[in-house]
Write a protein that binds this DNA or RNA. Structure first.
Length: 728
RNA sequence: GCGCGGUUAGCUCAGUUGGUAGAGCAACUCUUUUACACAGAGAAGGUCGUAGGUUCAAGUCCUACACCGCGCACCA
């Protein structure tokens, strides 16, 4: 008997030793498992990529939930003897990281404009590296059984090769194009963003009803009078009797000192009942108006610049911010008696996800992915169809399945994806332009000479993370890993990135490889506080830091608290009392194990089958009960019902194994009545229970296992619980 | 406006082919018995959001509605 088990279980001193054993064994790497004979080469494969955490700081509870859920899947697969790969990495997170660094610099009084592009980039890279190291260390401390030998970064050389290869292929297929279109401009971040990076915020606004001028016949309504300098038409519904006589006519008039030319058009998109039923069309500064202008071939007049400042108007307006200009215009309308009505309405304002700035729609030359173009090489399907197909055909199984509907809805409404960004951190767009000409080169074999300039923009960060299932396996090189592990078995991630990431991975894999990126998608929820608030750093003390928790209560307690009572797709409320409760369970495992070890010294445990055969009737029935439990939880593990399995196992261990079987054995041993059977039962039960508990509470089970092994003189790496076979 | 989720014990949540309501935590009573007081034993606690319907039988299926949360669209 080791001295250690006589003392109470201390997670904080035990866990580092366990981590070291696992690390030294190399068994997180499937190649090592094959080499050392714990996995057979032709075993079924389980592969999964880690959703790469952004290199923007430290791990939070959301990451912890992700690591824990995936580690359970991975450990279970490994114990089933599968060739198991869980592949780690980090995400450069382009805009998020750049903005974080900008903020850090501004705290030190340094402005982005004080630095050269190279200096600024260096600052970002330094920060990213530091964050990376923190995140990797923290992930390791959590016991995540990731194969670090295959670690990838979305912005490293191999991934850049993948990105450029895909870009070139899509360009050649006409799926990537450069176009002058109205886009979402973030005036604070000074970059374009995609539709998905917009967050709608409900705000109160004023709806103004007015005429451009006294001699203009139709009043219009708008919340943004300052944009009206850019109007080139007024649109009405074709069946609106009030305005029919005007349709087709054109007017030259003066609005707030600025000459404007307005054509009256009729379009079915116009709501008769909203405002005056007439819509001032501002093609350059409104998405809808841009589309109207396309349909009716209207000119575009830009009156707002990239800094959300006015480019036309008198002295109270020119060069002013839009809010200021709005007031000036309203003032002018009042003074001219043109303002007919002013009413409060609530409207959804588009803001930028990362900077919070109000989006300014602007026409700009940008790079896009065409989602509607038919692809000859793919049976003339477009990207949307390629994204819908595997879900519709159930080639990809989504858990919980209600997210299928959400996915369909999004794909069906998808517009072309704007992929260029005016930020410096990211994959540079692999396109060169010949100076003073129209010529361009896309992904040339070698860097062109000085007559050529590379595009200054970078790619949307989701372009590189969208390739993650195969770029991490070495694609575009022809690798053994690609052949073995792709399509991956499982993608486990948070449901809030279904569009950003899950959909894009399906897009790229379907298009590039003509295969699905993963067979299953499992969504976990968002971690919230007791009061239902999203767990984030801004909450201060209320936010739970996973690293603090594992220091205090141990990994095993945190894991149980995050798994029990948490079902896929649903949010999880986490509080410290629960974690403390599960730390007691770890102690229970420890104490029960101590009793078993102290009382089974004199039995021969080398032949488990023989032990089993010699059980008396009562103990044999108990063994059968456990076997039935294992049978049912194995089925439930295969259905990803981890909460149920953990709860059942917890309950069995405590209230059957400890409360009933151990108590019963005490009597038998004391009275020396069938005591061999009692001892055998304890040993056999503990042996199986440690295995089925291991995916959930890997640390304490590995520690108890190693004490049993020491007693039995087993010291080989192959004897680690980590690589034992799941009981059948 | 369209859609999704939630509403079950004080709290957090399970409850998969419809068949006498479950767990953890908290609170209560008793017990320091040699694995464990980070424990054991015991008791208590719910007309499963509301109203209908289907059925021999509904937390579970159907239809409305209410409240909470979320997504999408509109947003002149």
């Amino acid at each position: 008997m080791e001295e250690k088990i006589k003392k109470p279980y201390d997670a904080s001193s035990t866990e580092p030793q366990i981590l070291k054993k696992w690390d030294e064994s190399g068994f997180f790497n499937p190649d090592v498992c094959i080499e050392k004979g714990v996995t057979s080469k032709d075993a079924p494969v389980f592969s999964m990529v880690l959703p790469p955490p952004n290199v923007t700081g430290t791990l939070h509870t959301g990451h912890a939930l992700m690591l824990i859920t995936q580690d359970i899947m991975t450990r279970y697969a490994r114990m089933q003897g599968k060739r198991t790969l869980w592949l780690p990495g980090t995400d450069h997170a382009a805009i998020a990281t750049q903005i974080k660094v900008e903020k850090e610099l501004s705290k030190k009084g340094i402005k982005k404009s004080d630095l050269s592009r190279e200096e600024f980039l260096k600052k970002i890279e330094d920060y990213a590296l530091e964050s990376h190291d923190t995140i990797v260390n923290q992930s390791k401390k959590m016991g995540a059984s990731l194969d670090w030998s295959r670690e990838a970064f979305t912005l490293d050389a191999q991934r850049n090769k993948a990105v450029n290869t895909v870009f070139k292929k899509m360009y050649d297929d006409g799926l990537i194009y450069r176009g002058h279109r109205i886009i979402n401009w973030d005036p604070k971040g000074q970059t374009v963003i995609s539709d998905d990076e917009i967050v709608y915020e409900e705000r109160k606004a004023k709806l103004y009803t007015f005429k451009y001028s006294a001699d203009f016949p139709i009043p219009i309504s708008t919340t943004r009078p300052e944009t009206k300098f850019g109007d080139t038409a007024v649109a009405v519904h074709p069946e609106d009797e009030r305005y029919q006589e005007y349709v087709g006519k054109e007017y030259d008039t003066v609005f707030c000192g600025e000459p404007i030319h307005i054509k009256i058009i009729a379009d079915r998109e116009v709501e008769k009942d909203f405002g005056t039923g007439a819509l001032g069309v501002t093609p350059a500064h409104s998405m809808i108006d841009w589309e109207l202008a396309q349909r009716h071939d209207l000119p575009t007049k830009i009156v707002i610049n990239e800094y959300a400042k006015m480019t036309v108007g008198g002295e109270k307006i020119l060069g002013k911010k839009t809010e200021e200009a709005r007031e000036a215009v309203v003032e002018w309308l009042r003074s001219q008696n043109l303002l007919l009505k002013e009413e409060e309405i609530t409207q959804n304002v588009s803001t930028a996800e990362r900077t919070g700035a109000i989006i300014e729609p602007l026409p700009k030359l940008q790079w896009f992915v065409d989602v509607n173009k038919k692809i000859p090489d793919r049976q003339n399907k477009n990207l949307k169809e390629l994204m819908l197909e595997p879900i519709a055909q159930k080639k990809i199984n989504i858990i919980p399945d209600r997210f299928e509907k959400v996915y369909f809805n999004w794909v069906q409404n998808l517009r072309d994806w704007c992929i260029s960004r005016q930020i410096i951190y990211g994959h540079r767009i692999p396109v060169w332009y010949k100076k003073n000409t129209e010529e361009i080169l896309v992904c040339p074999e070698s860097t062109p000479n000085e007559e050529w300039e590379q595009d200054l923009d970078t790619l949307d960060t989701w372009f590189s993370s969208g390739l993650w299932t195969f770029s991490t396996l070495g694609w575009p090189d022809n690798t053994e890993d690609m052949r073995t592990y792709h399509p991956t078995t499982m993608l486990e991630t948070a449901h809030d990135i279904i569009f950003f990431w899950v959909a894009r991975m399906i897009l790229f894999s379907q298009y590039v490889l003509e295969e699905i990126p993963f067979q299953n998608v499992y969504f976990h929820g968002i971690v919230r506080t007791k009061d239902g608030k999203k767990m984030s750093k801004s909450l201060g003390d209320q936010a739970i830091d996973p690293l603090d928790i594992i220091g205090k209560y141990g990994n095993d307690a945190l894991r149980l608290a995050m798994i029990i009572g948490n079902t896929p797709g649903n949010d999880l409320k986490l509080n410290e009392d629960d974690i403390r409760g599960y730390a007691k369970f770890a102690n229970k495992i420890w104490n029960a194990s101590r009793f078993v070890l102290e009382n089974t010294n004199d039995i021969d445990s080398s032949d488990l089958q023989k032990l089993k055969e010699n059980l008396d009737t009562e103990d044999s029935a108990s063994m059968q009960e456990l076997e039935q439990l294992i049978q049912s939880i194995t089925k439930e593990m295969d259905e990803y019902r981890f909460s149920l399995v953990a709860e059942k196992t917890y309950h069995y261990f405590w209230h059957t194994f400890a409360d009933i079987l151990i108590e019963r054995s005490k009597k038998k041993i004391q009275e020396n009545k069938n005591s061999d059977s009692a001892k055998a039962l304890l040993y056999l039960q503990l042996h199986s229970l440690l295995k089925v508990l291991h995916p959930f509470t890997p640390f304490i089970t590995e520690e108890v296992w190693s004490i049993i092994n020491t007693k039995n003189g087993k010291h080989a790496e192959e004897d680690l619980l980590l690589v034992q076979k799941w009981p059948i």
